[in-house]
């Protein structure tokens, strides 16, 4: 098996190149996620697994089911299997770099002295992202002492939020965090795990919110930056449109939104305009808009 792996590595039997092309156009249109050619093996493997799970003998049979099934349940299953749903400290660090080097300098230009910079992490899950933001600002934002920053992490999953409030992490969650930061901002617990300092935990607000509920989300407004990574892909078209609208209203004019690294707003909503920075492409609520 291992001996002939090199040749097999790019082609999974049963799914040809035209099938892959057909699938990725469809998937991109539905989810806003684009698979480069080098992801083909990964994509084919997951397609094959879903074909087995649904009892489809051929790619074409499976694709018809995926494409025409009225309730979209199989598409949802497939999205779940295609998505690496892991969160860890400093994941996709280039976006945090973009925050401190490019976005915040522009944001604070619009601020009056004493005004607060507000950042929303959604979904914050077990807290890695929102705490990463806190650490990143404290460590790498030159102007951090000149402005007050309000950080809010929200999620729909209350069990995840409990963990976020506790702020206890181990192993995998911490692997990308520079050693000195682990020492500076965490307390080692007897079982070997690490808890983020109480002073950090106390300075961040964790809240439960359902992005799809207009009444629940109404109070969330006045943000300068929203991190909303790898969430919109889980929604259907209507829910994705609604989420985009909610995020639009949550942002100040000129505010920025960061999506996951393979998510593109161009398949989701025309409300935002792309903003190109040296570190990343993010999206911006147009400045001239009235509220």
């Amino acid at each position: 098996m291992a001996a002939d792996a090199p040749r097999e590595a790019t082609e999974v039997p049963g799914i040809g190149y035209e099938d892959f092309t057909r699938f990725r156009e469809f998937y991109y249109r539905k989810t806003g996620n684009w698979f480069e050619e080098n992801k083909r093996y990964y994509v084919d493997k997951r397609l094959l697994a879903r074909m087995r799970a649904t009892g489809c003998g051929t790619f074409r049979e499976y694709f018809v089911r995926l494409r025409f099934e009225t309730d979209g349940a199989e598409l949802q299953e497939l999205v779940n299997s295609m998505t690496v749903n892991e969160t860890y400290f400093f994941r996709e660090e280039y976006q945090f770099q973009c925050l401190v080097r490019s976005m915040l300098p522009r944001v604070v230009k619009r601020k009056k002295p004493g005004e607060t910079v507000r950042i929303w992490s959604l979904p914050c899950s077990t807290g890695e992202e929102v705490y990463s933001l806190a650490l990143y600002l404290l460590e790498y934002w030159d102007d951090v002492d000149d402005y007050n920053v309000e950080l809010i992490g929200s999620d729909i999953d209350t069990r995840a939020l409990e963990k976020a409030n506790q702020g206890i992490y181990e192993g995998r969650a911490l692997h990308a965090l520079p050693g000195p930061l682990l020492k500076r901002y965490f307390r080692r617990l007897p079982d070997g795990s690490h808890q983020i300092l109480k002073s950090i935990r106390d300075s961040i607000r964790i809240s439960r919110v359902n992005l799809q509920d207009p009444l629940e989300t109404r109070p969330y407004r006045g943000f300068d930056v929203v991190f909303c990574r790898n969430l919109l892909i889980y929604f259907d078209d209507a829910a994705r449109r609604r989420a985009a609208e909610t995020l639009y209203d949550a942002l100040n004019p000129g505010g920025y939104i960061c999506l996951g690294h393979s998510e593109f707003m161009s398949r989701i909503s025309s409300l935002f305009k792309p903003a190109r920075f040296p570190e990343a492409i993010v999206y911006q609520r147009p400045e001239e808009d009235q509220t």
Partner: peptide, 14 residues
């Protein structure tokens, strides 16, 4: 290539 006006704007930004 771009598949709609928005993606065109994304490409143009780049």
């Amino acid at each position: 290539e771009a598949v709609n006006g928005l993606e065109a704007l994304e490409r143009l930004a780049d």
